[in-house]
Design a protein around this nucleic acid. Structure first.
Length: 478
DNA sequence: GCGGATCAC
DNA sequence: CATGGTGATCCGC
């Protein structure tokens, strides 16, 4: 089996990227971050021991309070389908099973199979670089309606174990199986004793098997006292595995203390670098640095860091499912252009598309935001509030165009605004006014589910079908 | 409140 | 030749 070591992979990626505007922008961003970190370290150096001690005490007080609220009573499961999109395609096209393949396009991969990963082909990587890493790579365009349909099947399995499961995306969910465990303990008694497993482990193993029977796809799972820990655990025995972290404080602290901070959801590349500069790479190194952190980060971050350092996390899944949508947007990337006519036309088209999405969800909004990305990858947003909420494509388009013109006029004539991305977003959302319209929205929603689960191919097709049929149904009601 | 930054998927 | 789209949240000003 052919494959590359990390050094070789990085070399190929560097050669393919080097010199591109994307790479240049990325390096600029990194320099900015380096400067910010340097400044942070400078601040840290000037802290007096007294100040540090005081800050440490305050943080310890917060930690004490958090510790008092520790809830070990729930059993939370994080389930994650293995290389989901790629797995679906491999299932449906057996010739893809033993070749390196990825789902995505020339500009971006959503996921790759394990053969492709040996060559360094990863999610988030552009297709043209992936091909350089692995010339034999088979690229499969994504088929989201199919993935949605598969996801619905998986959801039905989730519902058995927790009717209030929280889907986080098409291939990921949290479940609280505490009630199921209590209600079904007896049924699993023999099974879990034979395999020397806890009740939770036996239940989750069975759930993963049910998913596999229903979809021919494998899933991995993490079992722990809260969502933060469960999420980390689901990654540990991937693919087709599970990891159980017992719900006692000692076990949790042993686990968290040696865990790299980057494994925590919410700690990304930037935060990792910042913390690394402070000598923090493991979660266990957060608490000894409480004072330092308190003097460098905001209150909000501090609370977050304290909870991570104690292995605390969310235990109430309704916090994931109850929220209302806060913004809705459409954006598109294209080959860079400074042609004003083209750019203006695209903004109008985006507004129409956005209107369609808002209509489907019965949403209206008050704040229009235009998003731009220059050919040098510099992002900007400009927004303007409306007098009253709307989803009217003309109104949204007019305001968005106005914002675009203002940006174009800021540029000197000899250096016109040259863009590679445009986006329109609506926020300050509310529900579309009721009366006859709301009814139609509801009916559209009902029909959407049926259409999608029937596996309709093109989303634009489905859109047309949905709306025309919804109108008929509405006419019938009238 | 706005715009930039960060993050997840 | 060439690096996505959607939504959320936090921070500084």
């Amino acid at each position: 089996m052919q494959g590359f070591d990390a050094a070789k992979i990085n070399e190929i990626i560097r050669k393919a990227s080097e010199g591109s505007r994307f790479y240049q922008h990325k390096q600029q961003a990194q320099q900015k971050l380096d400067a910010k970190i340097k400044e942070m370290l400078h601040t840290a150096q000037q802290m007096s021991p007294q100040l540090l001690e005081k800050a440490t005490k305050k943080m310890e007080a917060v930690a004490l309070e958090c510790e008092a609220g520790r809830d070990l009573s729930r059993t939370i499961v994080h389930v994650d389908m293995d290389m989901f999109y790629a797995a679906v395609e491999m299932r449906d096209q057996p010739n893809l099973k033993d070749v390196p393949m990825a789902v995505g396009g020339n500009s971006m991969l959503s996921t790759s199979n394990y053969i492709a990963r040996k060559f360094g082909v990863r999610a988030g990587m552009p297709g043209f670089i992936a091909r350089q890493l692995c010339p034999a790579l088979v690229l499969v365009p994504p088929n989201f309606s199919k993935y949605k349909a598969v996801s619905r099947v998986v959801e039905q399995v989730f519902a058995i174990y927790d009717p209030n499961y929280a889907m986080m995306s098409l291939d990921e969910a949290y479940l609280d199986i505490t009630d199921y465990m209590e209600a079904n303990a007896d049924a699993y008694q023999a099974k879990s004793e034979v395999d020397n497993e806890t009740l939770a482990e036996a239940i989750v193993r069975e759930m993963r098997l049910k998913i596999q029977e229903a979809t021919q796809l494998t899933a991995s799972a993490g079992i722990a006292a809260n969502t933060r820990l469960a999420k980390v655990c689901s990654d540990l025995n991937k693919p087709n595995g599970q990891y159980y972290l017992p719900s006692d404080t000692r076990a949790i602290m042993d686990f968290i203390n040696k865990l790299p901070i980057r494994k925590i959801s919410g700690i990304g590349n930037v935060t990792e670098q910042q913390l690394k500069a402070l000598g923090i790479t493991l979660c266990g190194q957060i608490r000894p640095n409480y004072g330092l952190l308190r003097l460098l980060f905001s209150d909000c971050s501090l609370d977050y860091f304290v909870r991570i350092s104690l292995g605390l996390g969310e235990t109430d899944l309704s916090n994931y499912t109850s929220g209302e949508q806060k913004s809705i947007s459409t954006e598109t990337t294209f080959t860079g252009t400074s042609c004003k006519q083209k750019l203006m036309q695209m903004v109008s088209d985006l507004s129409i598309e956005l209107h369609g999405d808002m209509k489907k969800k019965g949403l209206v909004g008050k704040l229009v935001t235009l998003k731009t990305k220059t050919v040098n990858f510099v992002l900007k947003t400009r927004s303007m509030a409306l007098g009253e909420p709307t989803s009217d494509p003309e109104v949204m388009g007019k305001v968005a165009r106005k914002l675009l013109i203002a940006e174009m006029e800021k540029c000197p004539v000899d250096e016109p605004l040259s863009l590679r991305l445009l986006g329109v977003r609506m926020s300050n959302l509310s529900e579309e006014a009721s009366s006859g319209r709301a009814k139609q929205t509801t009916i559209s929603k009902m029909f959407e589910k049926q259409t999608v689960s029937a596996g309709r191919e093109s989303s634009s097709n489905y859109c047309l079908v949905t709306e025309s049929v919804a109108r008929e149904v509405q006419a019938f009601h009238d």
